[in-house]
Amino acid sequence: MASTVTDMPLDAVALMSTVLEGILYGFSVLMFIGTIWTFTYKKRMREVNRPIAAVAVLLFLLSTMHMVVDIIQLEDGLVKYRNTFPGGPAAFFADYTQETYVVKVAAIVTQTLLADGVVVYRCYIVWQSVRVVILPCMMWCAVAVCGGFTVYGLSLASDANTVFTDQTGHWLTAYTFFTFTTNLFSSGLLAYRIWTIKRNISRIHTRRGIRPIVRVLVDAAVLYSATTFSVIICFALSNNGAYAIGNFLINPIISISFYMVFIRIAINKDTRPTVSGTVETDRGIPLHYHMQTLQTACKDNDILLAKIGIHPASLI
């Protein structure tokens, strides 16, 4: 099966991938609308998490631009220059020197930097420690450097097959590897920290649980990481699947993995948590002292969660 995919002409790969990208883009548009709704429904303007909302809008604009450029490129290769481009449509889609292709790859790199940057930012907010995010920040910078050289190298490439063998292929592989490790490592740190927050206030029996948040964050990380890992495998096998996933499918998946965090939490939306059980007290210390101390801890942690776009009222 691998050889069949490898031998598939790039015009056929581009057509199939654009159709699949259009389907995924449609889902991402619906999820974008739902995300904006969760940010603004019954909230004042000052209560909206503006940085996270701005990232959501930018991801939507970048994915829309990518979709439009793909349609233009598809029309050029299969219709406009079908009989005039040397080598036909297959050679057209193998020509990385076209402006449309360079713009498309630049959009993917920018979108990746935004999504990875949000995960690193969330880690810093919940950990409140610069030392914890030093390694994720270094990996994010590596993504930016490798992505920049990838865009530059692809703009000079003339044959799709050389991408797997020349220096551009090394930059592209490094870019994919670093975005994979940055997302996976940062998401792991974020999930672990949220879990420890829950453990520290576990003596209060509330209507809110932390497990749905951790599960949503892990699911989003797995979705994006599985996609980037597939690109790495395809590059290692010199498989045209890397062309399909890396140039078409990964773009809407980045947006979907970002939006799904807010959509799935909004589905579980409930009322504010209230104390529904008892609190064990130490000998000689009044009950209300424990209640006040632990509720203060809950409030502080609610503020941290709200800063990363997870509103406390939406937890169950």
Rank of each mutant, 00 (worst) to 15 (best):
N251A: 15
S202V: 00
F149R: 11
I125R: 14
L156K: 13
Y192Q: 10
A106M: 10
P286A: 05
G169W: 08
N240F: 06
V130R: 15
C146V: 10
T176C: 08
A157K: 08
C146D: 07
V214Y: 02
I72S: 10
R264Y: 09
Y192K: 06
N49P: 05
H288P: 06
N83H: 14
V126C: 02
V79C: 12
Y289E: 10
L304M: 09
A220N: 10
V132G: 12
M1K: 03
L78A: 03
R208Q: 13
W171F: 14
A94Q: 13
N247Y: 05
A144C: 14
D219T: 09
M139N: 13
V79Q: 10
D159N: 11
A90N: 15
A221R: 07
S314R: 13
R122E: 00
G309I: 00
T228P: 13
I33G: 14
G246H: 01
Y152R: 10
I303E: 08
I71V: 14
V133S: 10
Y96D: 01
I253N: 06
A107Q: 03
S3M: 04
C123V: 06
L223R: 01
L190C: 07
L20Q: 06
S230Q: 02
V275Y: 12
Y175V: 01
S255I: 05
I33V: 15
C137A: 11
D166H: 03
T293V: 05
Y152M: 08
A144M: 10
T296G: 08
I263K: 03
L20G: 14
V120T: 01
K80T: 15
R50L: 09
R283M: 08
S186T: 05
G241T: 06
G147R: 04
I263A: 01
C123H: 04
Y243I: 02
Y101P: 00
D7V: 00
T182W: 09
Y101S: 04
N200Y: 05
G188E: 03
V145M: 14
R207T: 13
S17L: 09
G209F: 09
T35H: 05
R50W: 14
G153D: 01
V133T: 07
D300I: 08
D270A: 09
P273Y: 03
G169K: 08
F177K: 07
V103E: 03
T165L: 08
T168S: 06
L217E: 05
I23W: 09
I194K: 00
W195C: 03
L10N: 02
C137G: 07
H66S: 13
F92W: 14
V132P: 14
V132W: 14
H170F: 11
R44S: 12
I285T: 01
S230A: 11
V103N: 02
V19A: 11
S255K: 13
F235A: 00
G309V: 02
I232Y: 05
D300R: 15
R44W: 11
G148R: 12
K42N: 07
L156G: 07
I134Q: 15
H66K: 08
I285Y: 01
